[in-house]
Design a protein around this nucleic acid. Sequence first.
DNA 1: TTGTACGCGTTATCAA
DNA 2: TTGATAACGCGTACAA
Lengths: 336, 336
Amino acid sequence: MITIKEIAKELNMSTTTVSNVIHGKTGEVSDATIKIVEDYLKKVDYVPNINARNLAQNESKIIGVALKARADKYENLLMDPFVSELIGGIEESIRNAGYFMMLYISRDTDEIMRHVSTWNVDGLLLFGMIGDDGIRVSERYKKPIVCIDTYSIEGLKHFTNVGLDDDKGCFEMVNYMISQGHRRIAFLSDNLNGVDFARYSGYKRALEANNIEFEDNWFFKIKPRSDELAESLNELCDRATNFDAIMCVSDLYAVQLMTALSDRGVRVPDDISIAGFDDTILGQLHRPSLSTVHQDVKEKGVVATDILLKRIKGENVPKQVQLPTRLIIRDTIKQI
Amino acid sequence: MITIKEIAKELNMSTTTVSNVIHGKTGEVSDATIKIVEDYLKKVDYVPNINARNLAQNESKIIGVALKARADKYENLLMDPFVSELIGGIEESIRNAGYFMMLYISRDTDEIMRHVSTWNVDGLLLFGMIGDDGIRVSERYKKPIVCIDTYSIEGLKHFTNVGLDDDKGCFEMVNYMISQGHRRIAFLSDNLNGVDFARYSGYKRALEANNIEFEDNWFFKIKPRSDELAESLNELCDRATNFDAIMCVSDLYAVQLMTALSDRGVRVPDDISIAGFDDTILGQLHRPSLSTVHQDVKEKGVVATDILLKRIKGENVPKQVQLPTRLIIRDTIKQI
DNA sequence: TTGTACGCGTTATCAA
DNA sequence: TTGATAACGCGTACAA
């Protein structure tokens, strides 16, 4: 690891000159020295020490990406294709912008805050925040924040949210199901907060709009933790036979349910219709292929990152972005 | 962002004392001052500036995780469940050890090297290295490196490799297929280097051991890039009908192939048998559920990270770790 | 037990 | 056009 100081000594010039050449401030340096320095830099393959640079400039060129994991959810959050596709989009944008990505997964908001302040990250991308988590972080961390899929009106004073019209997406799908003759339609998710609640609301709106009365046991609560999943699926399958269709809050759950159903001889869509949400690889590869509400997950990551980078540059950005959804009708909803 | 200096001034003591308390060098500080400092630290919520710390100590507490992406492969590497599960294991281990993870995806080895040297990362986890990529990196980057799934005998002089007995895993599976009466067995992958070559070798060994003569057109080359995939699958499906079975180099390809097959009315396993490799969620959720060679992907990430951390601490580590594989016989291979 | 002073590698200010 | 030098925040020898 050669340093500017060493280069300067070797070349019999000052560190300032070397630094100026490195930063292309060539207006202040003679062509001859530029050449000398540039050649030498290439020869010794100079790489700047970012820690020193950050210290001097009080910036880090790091974008912190913090995922909050719920205790009852995946032991391994990244295994959800939705999450990994999102991270993929984020990583790519960060890299293309010349920034660096520091990925951090935690159940503990305090831990996340400590992490971002030590590293003095230039901006923060938050995913999985529930309730006022986002607000708590933004109160302590004063630099730009962009949240993904957070439902907090209050929070929008502090950060931009990039989300979806989840309500509408679900509304349209359930509406479609009803148009195909289904009436007893259950809703499956693992909770009723944030995004899940918005989708649940869209589901209920569609029922109401069609004069179908929702009953409490139409809500199917799945337990995603791997040690409870099988049993949970068991119970759900038993209840499922009373329904025409099930609207699932994600493709992952839809496919897990269909697999469980198939294992006990229940045929989709002949015996029951299923819809998902997200349009991930899981539903695309399943047969019958899953009818679902499409969202561009990678794009979501890209948009969120772009907005964050703009805010870092001091540009004006919207408080809220709602990406569109689109119905993808494939083969898991039959007409009855 | 309060600094040690400011704290010292506020408390009328020296920075050394404050620093000593922070680092628990309490043998040298009176109990009274410890209390004062600790209370104050809590009150102002002191967070160290890592850049300054790194600069002073010449370490970073960062583990660089570099994934080399092949141009012809996924635009979005992380979408492969194998990769995301691996990252999940790595992230968890890094975090638990009190380190930080910097994720970097690139097609360009030079770019990766520049990245790790600027950040002065304490150790490097490499995945997706082909040929002597790993060696090239290790020649320039002098700190500990652990590679995952790299086949390079030469490289083992420079770094530890954490891999699998890919050859054996494939050998056993193909052997099993043959024991079920299959003889014309194709092998599907997107290339024949590294891991894929090892699996291919195992496949051919099994054929030989059973006196089955391999012919060139038994190798099915899939083109994974999304704009070529459909057509590639098309061609492969046409050729597939001449075979009893296909050994796929990954679960992802196996499931993609089965889906394509199913779409043109070819039934698995009635018309053709399929085996995968990896045992990811894709094969587990597919119906018929995929017979495959199991490997513990998350564990692979954990083991690799643990070894790297040991090397950073200066402990002795093996040059090579081969994690076990295990045959998982489910429903995609029939007896004929 | 506490304090002073310096070095880490870089950038920036100001003087030559 | 170039060079000295201070500053960034922290850790640590060494001195007091």
